[in-house]
């Protein structure tokens, strides 16, 4: 059991919707380097017997794990803070431009408007231009009711385009959000 799950009995609605969305999208494998904005998502996934959680210690491992799973026909998702895009940038670029392997990624929007941590702002400043440079379509998800349809669309889009997509979670869809 994930250590973040200790003492966390109540799963917030956004996290439960996220897991429900994974079920509807037939995702059974999640690779992640946990962070704070989506804390309860990791707890909920870890508690779910239908989804295997692979924890890594460097986001650069995640594209390979998700790509390998795709090549074997198993739907997988990678979740990380948006700063992880920078860490994983090289394998993401190569899996997309050199091999056209679809990767579905969810990142938390560290540095969104109202960010109180000085070190978090550079994450937001770099995220948009980086995704644009990688030609990765992205959607910001800030309403809980949008989580399920956006996860489904993300897998449809990535599979049909054979290219990565990115969902950026913020607002209601993060820990302590409004919902």
């Amino acid at each position: 059991m994930h250590e973040q799950s200790v003492g966390t009995d109540r799963v917030p609605r956004y996290a439960q919707e996220f897991v429900n969305g994974l079920h509807e999208a037939a995702v059974t494998l999640v690779g992640t380097l946990p962070e704070s904005h989506l804390k309860s998502v990791y707890v909920a996934i870890d508690r779910d017997p239908a989804i295997d959680l692979v924890r890594v210690s460097n986001e650069a491992e995640l594209p390979g794990i998700v790509a390998g799973s795709y090549l074997g026909g198993r739907r997988a998702l990678m979740i990380m803070e948006n700063s992880g895009l920078r860490q994983a940038c090289e394998p993401i670029a190569r899996f997309s431009f050199a091999h056209q392997v679809p990767l579905v990624m969810v990142v938390s929007y560290r540095g969104d408007f109202g960010e109180a941590n000085w070190w978090g702002h550079n994450h937001a400043q770099v995220m948009g231009p980086l995704l644009e440079a990688l030609r990765i379509p992205m959607k910001i998800v800030d309403r809980v009711d949008d989580i399920k349809p956006m996860l489904r669309k993300a897998f449809d889009h990535a599979g049909a385009s054979q290219w990565p997509v990115c969902l950026v979670m913020t607002g209601e869809c993060t820990e302590g959000g409004a919902a």
């Binding site: 494998l29 690779g31 295997d52 692979v54 650069a60 491992e61 995640l62 594209p63 390979g64 794990i65 998700v66 790509a67 390998g68 799973s69 795709y70 090549l71 074997g72 026909g73 198993r74 997988a76 090289e90 394998p91 190569r94 899996f95 050199a98 091999h99």
Partner: peptide
């Protein structure tokens, strides 16, 4: 054989494939 041009991602990709199958 999936031959990758990605140094540093060979084992990770094999891991994902092994978990899938």
């Amino acid at each position: 054989t999936m031959s990758l041009s990605i140094l540093g991602s060979i084992s990770s990709t094999a891991l994902g494939l092994a978990l899938a199958l």
